[in-house]
Simulated assay, not measured.
Amino acid sequence: MNGDNVFTGSVAPAVEGVAEEDAALAVEEVSPAVTATTGVIETDETECVTGIVEKPTEPSTLVTTGCYVLPEDVFHACALLRPSVEDEYQLSEAVRLLMRAGYEVATVRVGGRVNVNTPADVERAAELVRGE
């Protein structure tokens, strides 16, 4: 789980989603404006992940929440990664490698999340937790 996310609800459904698939990503519906700043999820008709696009140019509404339930083999996938143009290692790339290796990745929808990056986000997260 990304350390800069605050959830009001439980992410247990994402963990439980692994019982049916090899891995699970907690996802949420957001406005197209938000998708330019995060990873967009592409799914098939069963809601399994078929692709992840980081900071896309084309709007979508299903995005990662930073909560991943992944098999131990993700560490092998991470060892194969190369830095992005921003000199960062992208977890989404490791998930793509797992999918290419045949792993099924389910999506589990969650709501009530704030990605905390600014002082305003801290206040929004506090309001979310207080139920305001």
Rank of each mutant, 00 (worst) to 15 (best):
N2V: 15
G3V: 14
N5G: 13
F7Q: 08
F7P: 15
F7I: 02
F7Y: 09
T8E: 11
G9H: 04
G9W: 08
V11A: 14
P13T: 11
P13A: 04
V15T: 15
G17C: 07
G17S: 03
G17F: 01
G17Y: 08
G17L: 02
V18F: 03
A19F: 06
A19Q: 08
E20C: 13
E21L: 09
E21N: 01
E21I: 10
E21Y: 12
A23N: 15
A24D: 02
L25S: 12
L25E: 09
A26E: 06
A26T: 04
E28Q: 02
E28Y: 02
E28F: 07
E29S: 06
V30L: 01
V30N: 00
S31L: 15
P32N: 09
V34A: 08
T35A: 12
T35P: 10
A36M: 10
A36H: 12
T37E: 15
T38N: 15
T38F: 14
G39M: 12
I41K: 01
E42S: 11
D44T: 09
E45T: 15
E47K: 15
C48A: 05
C48N: 07
I52N: 00
I52F: 09
V53D: 07
V53W: 07
P56W: 04
T57R: 12
T57L: 09
T57E: 09
P59T: 04
P59D: 00
S60A: 12
T61L: 02
T61N: 12
T61C: 05
L62R: 05
L62D: 08
V63L: 03
T65N: 05
T65K: 11
G66Q: 11
C67W: 10
Y68A: 08
L70I: 01
L70F: 01
P71K: 07
D73T: 13
V74T: 00
V74C: 01
F75D: 08
F75N: 10
H76D: 01
H76V: 10
C78A: 10
A79F: 01
L81S: 06
L81I: 13
S84Y: 04
S84W: 07
E86K: 14
D87W: 06
Q90A: 10
L91A: 03
L91G: 05
S92K: 07
S92F: 06
E93A: 08
V95G: 00
V95M: 02
L97Q: 02
L97W: 06
L98M: 03
L98T: 03
M99H: 06
M99W: 05
R100G: 03
A101H: 09
A101Q: 05
Y103N: 00
E104V: 06
V105T: 02
A106L: 03
T107K: 04
T107L: 03
V108N: 00
R109S: 06
G111L: 03
G111S: 01
G112S: 04
G112T: 05
R113S: 01
R113T: 04
R113P: 04
R113G: 07
V116G: 14
N117I: 07
N117Y: 07
A120K: 15
D121H: 13
E123R: 13
R124C: 05
R124G: 10
A126F: 05
E127Q: 11
V129D: 09
R130N: 11
R130A: 10
G131D: 14
E132A: 15
